[in-house]
Design a protein around this nucleic acid. Structure first.
Length: 134
DNA sequence: GCCAACGTTGGC
DNA sequence: GCCAACGTTGGC
């Protein structure tokens, strides 16, 4: 079981919309490192959902329901998507500021590599953020 | 809206 | 294969 964090701008695709849809394919990744992370996702892996720009907080947990396949929005075979479904909404969103202030989370990619939109998390980091959000 | 960070592209 | 130019992301 692996853990991940994905970013979405809420006005582009929000957690609320995701919960209405119940399932979505995660498209729009056009960065090789993020793409490689998508390809490493396995069915059942858990994924934190982060709102960038507006909110700047982790708002919920999703899970991988279909492993990577050709991005249906482009014929370019370089790009893939995965299918995700919502699992639960955090009682309290965990803000970027809280994460920055938490010493055990200072090494996560969200902070160290701000522009990456799909990143792996260690189990301890994932658990810590869930704990902060409950 | 600005700008820093950083990935990508293309000329040499 | 280096590196300057350029584009994109995302925090502020």
């Amino acid at each position: 079981m692996n853990y991940w964090l994905v970013k979405s701008e809420p006005h582009k695709y929000s957690w609320e919309k995701f919960n209405e849809d119940k399932r979505t394919f995660w498209d729009g990744v056009r960065n090789y490192q993020a793409r490689n992370n998508l390809r490493d996702m396995r069915e059942g892996d858990l994924v934190l959902f982060y709102h960038s720009n507006e909110g700047k907080c982790v708002v919920g947990v999703a899970k991988v329901v279909r492993e990577s396949y050709q991005d249906p929005t482009t014929p370019d075979p370089n790009w893939v998507v995965v299918d995700l479904s919502p699992v639960e909404t955090l009682k309290k969103p965990v803000t970027l500021e809280q994460i920055k202030n938490e010493s055990s989370l200072k090494d996560i990619s969200l902070i160290r590599q701000g522009r990456l939109s799909v990143m792996p998390l260690k189990a301890a980091e994932f658990d810590k953020i869930l704990e902060m959000g409950s």
